[in-house]
Design a protein around this nucleic acid. Structure first.
Lengths: 329, 329
DNA sequence: TAAGCGGTTGCAAGGACTTGCGTTGATAGC
DNA sequence: GCTATCAACGCAAGTCCTTGCAACCGCTTA
């Protein structure tokens, strides 16, 4: 970058002093000259100083694990919209196959000078995964909010859907219908919300033999539920709607009808779940309220307010549709 | 920023020379010292030079209009995954209610020094909207690919699903079943893919009286289809799966069955459309192939290759499920 | 133990950038 | 037509940053 000022000055036909003033936003330069200098800077391939790029860089990182499950795009829309109203722009980062790790995204977001970061259903949810990058955020004092999981050691504010209540609701619903042999399809073993649902399931007397862990996808649900169906469950509670749809498919593949032979309960109430066959009974996460809480917590931190590193628990809501019914007598 | 080097040097306990070397990425500094200097820089609130932020800033902007329609998150996953394999990180930008405009996103992405931009179903699709920001991209010679629309005046490479073939397939399918009174539910009037479908519909002898424009949402489809149903159509072709689901709902609200009384054809074949009631007959966009083509075109541009500003047309595929049938005699 | 060697760091000269001040030129007022 | 005024800009001194060179340190080798 030797002789940057000299080169630009020569190109524009002004003195180095003038170029220097433009680059530092100093007064005493006409608009026309300022514009000419900046243009020459771009033409010559130099980078403009940050403050001249307009300081609209009010960016917030939004880190999601995937986009397949419709709950994540839906959540991104809620949070993105609420942030936009506060004058922030959200940058959506998704881990994809063969893609970028969460730690990489944290590096990236730090480099981009984001004002804050929101993690939803990310690695942090997996208790066994590396947490080094969270500590990095903590050191840098970057405003952060975690959604639907807990990292106990770190002091981040958290927003979650109450998994205990969710599991109780689902279990209570199918038991009230008369089911006794009830299966549970969960995400990976180190996924905290799944772990919490499992604990509640067992505390409420659910059969630990009828619990399956799998990946969060329709196919994963299919495989896990197939095992449960073979063991004669009459109801299956799932940790996501996609798992529930996989469960419906597994039951049908086994020649059973839903809800005639097997009742299925989902979790999330993501979009279109009232258009499915059968319309899915599910436990709704209040993502609107949660999203707004996330943004409030984040903006408060950005405004230097002291935010307690508590976990805000939101009450889910049971949405009864047509995938659950009384068991066959 | 007076005495930056001196201040940092004093804090770390080294000479200004060493700090200078670190800031310029020069060799001859131990890793420990380098780290200490960078940490001090952060602590003192100075900004790291761009090249030290890891030159992994191989960012690509991915601008989508919304995330409600599952086709957009799906597309984002395909493109994001393919980009990740090439070592790029995608930044997903979504316009949301009360949110950021496409022009704002372009500014933002330029500021973040992205390597390229992909627009899908964005403003550019709307022929009447402002295109100033596309010209800006063109001036800066920033690699850009447009998906599913045309901006004739600008020389951007484009990747699209062939709307002519899509409309012919859908129309041919319902006509082969014996339908004659066929409605068409499209997006906004200035949405280019909708416009192309309309032209094909008319060229193939479709009735212009049975065409409705609406917003791209389930509710929009419901409202538009309700008007068509009142006019006695026996089949409805829709410009997206969400519109099709809205159409199914409108038909049922009118006391008609699908496909018994009304056949419905969607467009996109987004996820879960085989789980709906009824499973939706739809025209599949080959988003995998399209996504890979987008990435190829973009990476070629980034690698300074000359890419023709053509429109690559991808053939859609008719997926017949259970929302279409012969009309009642 | 001393010499050799490679990696790390400070010194200081030289170069790049900044800034106070003076000059220029345009405009307006007398 | 003359001059006061002021914005815009260049000059050059001063400040800050960069870099070649040499000193230093720890390690290996004779």
């Amino acid at each position: 970058m030797t002789r940057r000022l000299a080169e630009v000055a020569k190109k524009v036909g002004v003195s180095e002093a003038t170029v220097s003033r433009v680059l530092n936003g100093k007064p005493g330069v006409s608009d026309a000259t300022r514009e000419a200098v900046l243009t020459a800077l771009d033409v010559l391939g130099y980078e403009r100083p940050t403050q001249l790029r307009g300081d609209r860089a009010r960016l917030v990182g939004l880190v999601l694990p995937e986009l397949q499950n419709p709950i994540f795009p839906a959540f991104a829309e809620v949070v993105g919209g609420a942030l936009a109203q506060q004058g922030f722009t959200s940058v959506l980062c998704t881990r994809t196959v063969g893609g970028v790790s969460e730690a990489d995204y944290v590096d990236l977001l730090l480099q981009q000078q984001v004002s804050g970061v929101v993690f939803a259903g990310g690695l942090y949810a997996q208790a066994d995964a590396s947490h080094g990058h969270y500590e990095l955020l903590h050191e840098r004092k970057l405003p952060t909010v975690l959604v639907n999981a807990a990292v106990e050691r770190l002091d981040f504010p958290q927003v979650s859907c109450d998994d205990v209540v969710a599991a109780e609701m689902a279990l209570g619903h199918v038991r009230a219908l008369g089911h006794e042999r009830i299966g549970l399809v969960l995400g990976p073993k180190d996924h905290v919300p799944s772990r919490r649902k499992l604990e509640t399931f067992q505390a409420e007397g659910g059969d630990p033999e009828l619990v399956e862990h799998t990946m969060f996808s329709l196919e994963g649900g299919h495989a896990a539920a197939a095992r449960l169906v073979r063991r004669g469950v009459t109801a299956v509670i799932c940790a996501s709607d996609l798992l529930a749809l996989g469960t419906v498919r597994a039951a049908r593949r086994a020649g059973l009808s839903v809800p005639g032979d097997v009742s299925v309960v989902g979790f999330d109430d993501s979009a279109l779940m009232n258009c499915t066959e059968p319309p899915l009974t599910t436990v709704r996460q209040p993502i609107d309220a949660m999203g707004r809480a996330v943004v409030d917590l984040l903006v408060a931190q950005i405004d230097k307010a002291v935010v307690p590193a508590d976990e805000l628990l939101f009450e889910p809501e049971l949405v009864v549709r047509a995938s659950t019914a009384r068991p066959r007598a």
